[in-house]
Design a binder for these strands. Sequence first.
DNA 1: AAAATGCCCAACCGCTGCTTG
DNA 2: ACAAGCAGCGGTTGGGCATTT
Length: 261
Amino acid sequence: MGRSPCCEKAHTNKGAWTKEEDDRLIAYIRAHGEGCWRSLPKAAGLLRCGKSCRLRWINYLRPDLKRGNFTEEEDELIIKLHSLLGNKWSLIAGRLPGRTDNEIKNYWNTHIRRKLMNRGIDPATHRPINEPAAAATTEVKTLSFATPAVKEEGEDQEEEKEEKKVIIGNAVGFNSKEVIEKNLINLELRISLPYQNQSEPLNIGNSATGLCFSCSLGIQKSEECSCGNIGTSNNASRGNIGYDFLGLKSGVLEYRSLEMK
DNA sequence: AAAATGCCCAACCGCTGCTTG
DNA sequence: ACAAGCAGCGGTTGGGCATTT
């Protein structure tokens, strides 16, 4: 048997929150802190379900929320993060202090989508709208590399052979579930390169360190390594991507911070 | 001035993965 | 082991406000 229900839905309020409800919720969380949303409504004297209280607090009442208009810098950061992460609003919000996933999601749908459309960029793919579909799927490189993690003795031989792959292409598309289900990668993320004119050579390695793109990503032992540093790169352990990816300079995006689960 | 239309955003809905009993 | 609840997430909705006709 499971646990008892969190609240009686028949006796809960719905719709817009009143000032009194807000005050009760704020007062309760100030006194007892966040968490245990299940018991919070009853303890705080609110006729709301815990889920509704959590949403109200996170999206509206939290004292560290910025409110107000998004800055141009925030706009550009959201665009860049979206090109990397897709509709992972909570991850994007994690990079924008004082902003919530709901707020960013709304802002994206109402402002940034239109902004990109006006620039002639498809907000879903971050590519020029008139670009042929075929071109969007070319130049997809798959880097294969054995997992650097130390295997414990006695693990299945088949498991030993499994590859973990980072799919690097200039197509932004997320099918992370499939990738994870196939146990190909432990990152719920596809890292994709920005659109580039085919005539322009890719110059995304780290010229400062002399590392190629795959080494800069911390992908050791990659077949795609072109810099001769196979197995010697320690960027992964440093945690930084170390190149200007979509204009995100080293340190803005930390590789480890993109790991999920 | 009133009606129609468009926009914004808070809140809800439904799903997924994890936890609990 | 299993069923049911919880927390968190992304998608969608609808009410209120602003602008246009």
